[in-house]
Design a protein around this nucleic acid. Structure first.
Length: 421
RNA sequence: GGAGAGCUGGCAGAACGGCUAAUGCACCGGUCUUGAAAACCGGCGUCCGUAAGGACUUUGGGGUUCGAAUCCCUAGCUCUCCGCCA
């Protein structure tokens, strides 16, 4: 959430910022109205409370001296009911204000292209050669079926669409990629975590999944938990309501988890094969950083993620997301898209974002600068990487005319085999 | 799942329903010192207010009372014992 002081002091800047994300700037005027009323009530209520405290102290004194206090006590009835009236209104205003603040998106960084649709995203770089093979390339779902390495149909029976079984070399390839990604992250200074796979409401609100994206998550109603939609949620919440020392920054974590997403409303060829699943595996990279460093940390995070695709020798491009396409919580976001040669399309395998203080303020994560008061820090995260589309691109890219798949060299020590099929 | 005990600042740890929520450690600033340590002084949560000042803060929420860390209800969490269990 945005800093109320920022909204109070620079309402115009904030309005322009959220307008770029396609949000109605009128909500800012509502915030200002609530804020003004809130402060007005606080002042009146506190005046009465001050009076009440003074009277109570007086009563204590009279009683100790053995005198009668009934006259002063009688005076309190009205004061108390007035306090209650103010505090009731204050509670309502604060609830409204807070609810509203939670629905106001983060303000985009000035570098970010202004736009509304994916066409407005800016390609900032490209790596690797996109070559068309001589032979007819098969899309990954056909390779999967022929090689019998992933069973979608039985997944449908056991759970539903989008919950596949990975089999044989398919399962081993998953394990290999997860270990490869985690090991590479470790070489870049990320400490490994195995987080909880269910999260509570406070955690989901902290990173911004709630209230914005409630429909995206699977719920566990009996215990009021959500299944993790990404490791970002438990990992970023690890320091909720804590104060870190400045000398410990940046703190870097990597975590593998399955991710569960309802993805309501998606269908068609976008979801063929591994393109979109309800349960998928991902290694996530999360950083807690000093506010002055967050944009350089964003670039190094992007480099950490890009390197993984380079090691797998898969062609990809980097997009700088436009204001309208980047999401609620981010100030600046890159997507990495890998080339799937048989489908002849780019597949998003990583999103790399700076949230500045937006998440950290919701979670109350601070650091203590030398000798100073605690300050809200900045959070970032990026996928490093999401598996299914990497697998899709890998199968398509490394297929042979005979329908086999060559395992890229970087994975050999993890898979223990060099060819599938 | 059952029974019991508990939750006070960054940490440890006091407080008969009333007077400024002690005290110690850690941390920050200052004095002193060539420098450091020690000692001493001050600071060390949030909000409102230009300020003076005021309000709030003993896990969260509600209640009793002129007045609640303290009593009552409720939620969460932690610990101990029992049961079940990979």
């Amino acid at each position: 959430m945005l800093d109320i002081k920022l909204i109070r002091e620079h309402p115009q800047t904030v309005k322009e910022g959220i307008a770029k994300k396609g949000e109605d700037p009128a909500s800012i005027d509502k915030v200002l109205g609530f804020d003004a009323r809130r402060r007005e009530i606080i002042q009146q209520s506190e005046l009465l409370k001050s009076r009440k405290n003074a009277v109570s102290a007086e009563v204590g004194k009279l009683k100790r001296e053995g005198k009668d206090a009934s006259a002063v006590i009688a005076e309190m009835d009205e004061v108390k009911s007035n306090i209650k009236a103010f505090d009731d209104e204050l509670a309502l205003i604060e609830a409204d204000l807070n609810k509203l603040l939670l629905t106001i998106p983060n303000i985009p960084h000035p570098d970010v292209p202004v736009g509304r649709t994916p066409e407005d995203n800016k390609e900032v770089s490209r790596w690797g050669e996109i070559e068309q093979q001589e032979f007819e390339m098969k899309p990954h779902w056909e390779l999967i079926q022929k090689l019998d390495i992933i069973d979608f149909e039985r997944g449908v029976k056991v759970t539903g669409a989008g919950f596949p079984f990975y089999k044989d070399k398919g399962a081993k390839l998953q394990r290999a990629l997860i270990n490869f990604f985690l090991d590479e992250a470790a070489t870049r200074g990320y400490k490994e975590l195995q987080p909880p796979l269910m999260i509570n409401t406070a955690s989901a609100t902290g990173t911004g999944q709630l209230p914005d994206k409630e429909d995206l998550m699977y719920t566990v109603p009996r215990d009021e938990f959500y299944m993790v939609p990404t490791a970002e949620v438990p990992v970023t919440n690890i320091f909720r309501d804590e104060i870190l020392s400045e000398k410990d920054l940046p703190v870097k974590f990597c975590a593998y988890t399955p991710c569960f997403r309802r993805e309501a409303g998606s269908y068609g060829k976008d979801v063929r094969g591994l393109n979109r699943l309800h349960q998928f595996d991902k290694v996530e990279l999360v950083k807690f950083v000093h506010p002055e460093k967050s944009y350089e940390e964003l670039e190094s995070l992007r480099d950490d993620a890009e390197r993984l695709l380079q090691l797998l020798a898969l062609p990809y491009r980097v997009l700088l997301m436009c204001t309208g396409d980047m999401g609620f919580t981010q100030t600046k976001k890159y997507d990495l898209e890998v080339w799937a040669p048989a489908q002849k399309r780019w597949l998003e395998v990583s999103s790399i974002s700076n949230f500045e203080s937006f998440q950290a303020r919701r979670m109350n994560i601070r650091f203590r600068p030398a000798g100073g008061k605690p300050e809200i820090l900045h959070t970032l995260n990026g996928s490093g990487l999401a598996l299914p589309r990497v697998v899709a691109a890998l199968l398509e890219h490394y297929q042979t005319p005979e329908g086999k798949v060559i395992v890229p060299k970087a994975l050999h020590k993890y898979t223990g085999f060099e060819v599938i099929g």
